[in-house]
């Protein structure tokens, strides 16, 4: 059976509607959302209400968490002070706009969802703020999936869709003991695991302005990355009209951003 995974809607209603229409057209009725319903974009209430109305299983994103708990991410989440100021501005605006009901919906979201051997999270199983980039250390990537007890990990947060297969892994170890130096080493065979990043519906950073999401077939394990065009101009205009930083509109209309993410992607702040 095919099911769809969407992430990082970021209060972009035209993009969210376009992606949901695309999924509906294919007759797929299981949809999982990996969070970041709000932030950056101009329609936070509309997007949250659409997800609620459609009753889409959703886990909490980094923006959803910060709106509920207050901005407690350390500066490491932002690459520059300018980016941080813009982030704070968008946070404040979103906080002012969101209704109490929609806030309590965001507060009620779980940090992960599990269906058999599939695990759904926003950033990583460790944190909503950890980036699993496509080129991160392969062993560390495998550790995230394996320690969480999953075969396939679905994540978002990087806004770059990808499918990564980790296989034929092994680690040889040898113990230097206090009592006796045992020379015979041991070899651990590592399991095959997959990471699927759903990209971003409302704030794509993969090089095009199209919204992205993924479809997974749970019988064949095949994954398809989908791109959906939508009316970018409509969202950009709404961003400007809302008084949000114009750079958010510029970014959407160019389809990339200057990697506004932590320099050290594996860094998890210890707040």
């Amino acid at each position: 059976m095919n099911h769809a995974i969407i992430s990082c809607l970021h209060a972009n209603l035209p993009a969210t509607e376009a992606v949901l229409n695309d999924i509906d057209r294919q007759g797929i009725d299981t949809i999982t959302c990996l969070g970041d319903l709000v932030g950056y974009g101009p329609q936070p209430n509309e997007v949250v209400e659409l997800i609620r109305k459609r009753d889409i299983a959703t886990c909490q994103g980094c923006w959803d968490e910060d709106i509920i708990d207050g901005l407690n991410a350390c500066e490491c989440s932002y690459p520059s002070q300018l980016a941080e100021r813009r982030g704070h501005l968008a946070h404040q605006w979103t906080d002012d706009q969101l209704t109490d009901e929609n806030k309590s919906f965001l507060a009620s979201l779980p940090t992960s969802l599990r269906r058999d051997r599939l695990l759904f999270v926003h950033g990583s199983p460790n944190s909503q703020h950890e980036y699993l980039l496509p080129d991160m250390d392969a062993f560390a990537a495998l550790e995230r999936v394996d320690t969480a007890g999953a075969d396939i990990l679905f994540c978002g947060h990087t806004h770059q869709p990808y499918v990564r297969e980790l296989r034929d892994g092994s680690i040889r170890v040898r113990l230097q003991n206090a009592d006796h130096d045992c020379d015979q080493g041991e070899e651990l065979t590592l399991p095959m695991r997959k990471i699927v990043n759903a990209g971003s519906v409302g704030e794509p950073r993969h090089g095009s302005t199209n919204a992205t999401y993924v479809i997974h077939n749970d019988a064949t394990d095949e994954v398809e990355i989908k791109e959906v065009p939508y009316d970018v101009g409509r969202t950009c205009q709404a961003i400007v009209e809302a008084g949000l930083p114009k750079v958010f509109a510029w970014r959407l209309s160019h389809g990339f951003e200057f990697a506004e993410q932590a320099e050290d992607a594996s860094h998890v702040c210890e707040r």
Partner: peptide, 25 residues
């Protein structure tokens, strides 16, 4: 204890909208 990692490796394949790439580590 003193545990040494002495060898081994892993293959990784990344597929994105630009295509596929293989990586060995």
């Amino acid at each position: 204890f003193h545990l040494e990692l002495t060898g081994g490796g892993i293959n990784s394949q990344v597929k994105d909208l630009n295509g596929k790439r293989e990586q060995q580590q």
